[in-house]
Design a protein around this nucleic acid. Structure first.
Lengths: 331, 331
DNA sequence: TTGTAAGCGTTATCAA
DNA sequence: TTGATAACGCTTACAA
């Protein structure tokens, strides 16, 4: 076991060239004489050299890496977003670093600090509530930043997202058009998107001359939580005949509760979810849910950053993607 | 907007001291005269200085950061593991960097390469199948490495995990003890843990004088997949009266299929899952599932690394944690 | 209490 | 085609 990792100098000493030649070989094998290249290749192989990008980051202040900050590591929604980002970054030879915040703006600040101290070339964020210090850091860092998932009213820099308020509004109008009279909004932990959907719900309700009713909690959303929220809704608002759920986890919990309590879906209770995850399709009847193009958002967010890093100016820097509804049968 | 991020030198120039004094202030405010400290603090505030840890990483070859490599970003299991790791690292002032592999050993190699090139001080891995190049890199890097989730037969370095084969063996014996005659193993994408559980299943079946039957697929596990696997099992092995599922997603899919097809659980079909996620508790009847202490694994894995980084030698470097079964009612 | 000098490992630049 | 040199921004060790 070596005392320390081999450096370019170590390789060069063995081969009998300077580290500059080895460095050249690593980045462009053709820029070195064939014979030299072969010798270097052999030594690299046996010594198990691991490249060290820290010096390059130091001298160029660039790391060929994007940072992605997501709220949660166990949510398919953000996994899809990351997948989309990496589809694009991989094509451009960029790496990605991932950190999660647990939906806390303070943790987000710390993670952004860490990523900036690692000199990421660009950042992709997923929440639009930032601390003052975060905003200051992002400004100072002067790197391209894209906020995703939602489109903030005043973006830090660029944005690719959905109009969640409009989606909520559309869903509720569909529910009302189906003949339901008393749709209730079920909300879990209040992130920004949850609140935007609520606003859309309320707007549609008010326009229809109805009183909006939201049943919410500060807990993480979960399947069991969906059951609890529905129980509370039915207890406090017995007329409830439809629920618009802030996400599919809650919607599934609602459906499971209905099965246990012999409520027919959608006859007794219409259910609409949000994000159209796989489990909804496995339910009986299949869950009606809002389709959100997460991977596309990720791809476009990364594309915006790549464009800026190439010194070009994107045509649009704030992009709103369309939403639609699955052909489920719970509405 | 500045052309580039302010450096310590910039701050120092404004204050009228050397960058060394500013550096001292940042790390230990008391090591600087009170008056000087106040001046520095003021300038730091207005200039929005962001610390740059790259030079320190370069000169000390240490980053106060651990790398965590997980297969998937949308699995509660790995989210819990990361949570456990971060509980420990936070106490020691260490940061974490996360990367995901999509269950590919080649991607794992690339991500490990990236993390090593960022000079992480330790690595936490979640799969035990590594490429030759990965093994060579880990050896050269000479940093503490912990493999988690399972306990490999020949660990790269240290390990904290569960005995999945034993867990599978125990589950199947419980199923047989309940009177079921034809338990089938339902497997999704074959990662190492899925195969270990299968081995335990087969061992128990053979010991009971029965023929093991595994129904599997190369696809990602999902709820819909659980339904499909069960349909295949029932079609090909009509005597099937119990299923041991490689994870809860598959088990839930099985339960949903049973609901649709009026199969009674556990009378017509017993179901056992793996990981004891939240959704299992929301089902009717509640899913019986193997409890895996993910957060504890993460904590212990990180503790091992912290111990080594402090120059001490851990008492045990290969730790097997206990498993148990939820008090569900599907068995 | 503050300052000076050297060094971390790579790459851009210029020279041979 | 290869080499010599300087630079990136910080911290350690030593000096004042």
């Amino acid at each position: 076991m070596p005392a320390r990792r081999p450096t370019l100098q170590d390789i060069a000493d063995i081969v009998g060239v300077t580290k500059m030649t080895v460095s050249r070989y690593l980045r462009a094998p053709d820029s070195v004489a064939t014979a030299t290249g072969e010798k270097i290749a052999a030594v690299l192989e046996t010594s198990g050299y691991i490249r060290n990008r820290v010096p390059a980051i130091l001298s160029k202040s660039s790391s060929k890496t994007l940072g992605i900050i997501i709220p949660s590591l166990s949510n398919q929604v953000f996994a899809d977003l990351v997948q989309g980002v990496e589809t694009t970054t991989a094509q451009h030879g960029y790496d990605t670093l991932i950190a999660h915040t647990g939906y806390s703006a303070e943790v987000e600040q710390d993670k952004i600090d860490m990523m900036l101290s690692y000199q990421v070339d660009g950042l992709i964020l997923t929440e639009s509530g930032h601390t003052a210090r975060t905003l200051q850091m992002l400004k100072q860092a002067a790197i391209p930043v894209v906020e995703t998932m939602e489109v903030p009213s005043s973006p830090v820099d660029m944005a690719v997202g959905l109009d969640h308020e409009q989606a909520g509004y559309d869903v509720v109008n569909r529910i009302l058009a189906s003949g339901k009279q008393h749709p209730v909004y079920l909300a879990a932990r209040m992130d920004t998107r949850t609140m935007l959907r609520q606003r859309g719900y309320e707007k549609a309700m008010v326009e229809a001359g109805k009183t909006p009713v939201t049943v919410s909690t500060s807990e993480h959303s979960s399947f069991t939580l969906g059951s609890e929220l529905l129980a509370r809704a039915l207890a406090n608002y017995p007329k409830t005949d439809a629920v618009f759920c802030t996400n599919d986890d809650v919607a599934i919990g609602v459906m499971l509760y209905c099965q246990q309590n012999k409520l027919r879906i959608p006859d007794d209770l219409a259910v609409v979810g949000y994000n159209a995850l796989n489990i909804g399709a496995a339910m009986t009847p299949p869950l009606t849910s809002v389709i959100t193009p997460r991977d596309k958002m990720g791809e476009q967010a990364a594309s915006l950053i790549m464009t800026v890093l190439q010194g070009e100016t994107p045509k649009e820097t704030v992009i709103t993607l369309p939403h639609s509804l699955t052909p489920g049968r719970t509405l």
